[in-house]
Design a protein around this nucleic acid. Sequence first.
DNA 1: AAGAAGATTCGCT
DNA 2: GCGAATCTTCTTA
Length: 196
Amino acid sequence: MRRTELPAETVTLARFLLGAVLVRDTPRGRIAGRIVETEAYLPGVDPASHAYRGETQRNRSMYLRRGHAYVYFIYGTWFCLNVTSEAPGIGAAILLRAVEPLDGIALMERRRGTARATDLARGPGRLAAAFGLDRRHDGLDLCAAGSELWLAAGSPPDSIEESVRIGVSLAADRVLRFFEPESPFVSGTRRLNERR
DNA sequence: AAGAAGATTCGCT
DNA sequence: GCGAATCTTCTTA
């Protein structure tokens, strides 16, 4: 698989990442999935972004140059993986919400405790769990040669659908979620043009 | 120092 | 559909 070059603007990157492949190379083998759902957390004024109130210990990685991993822990149980999206010093990122499992499916099944393909990585917490991601992966360069976790070129979706972001209470009306509408691996119930 | 909220998921009703 | 689980982080509600 070939590495990808990333576009330089957050929403553009959120759309670009659909169809790209997330890869983790572990001693037990390769885990890979095709990205089918993303959410943008914008630079500047975005009250829903972890970077809205400035840099803190937790969101430090969001300020890395585009193409780095920002992994955070939430609800006492789950990790979520983001791809940073702007220039160094600007806090912004794309949340990876769902992938279609491609490689390492047995590893994913073991980590997730299910064999149902559409439940392996549908939702950001499940995705990170299926890939075995945690704090160790925070700040990794997803475009670096030899990186354990990296982004590969894939196949672009036939079409892209948009909606409001899922699970956010602030700036809840902003249409910043992007997904492949035909994919059964997409999370959430808000599909197709729902823009509450 | 303490408390509330959170970019979620799962199981039960 | 609703609430619990579970704990880190930030704010001071």
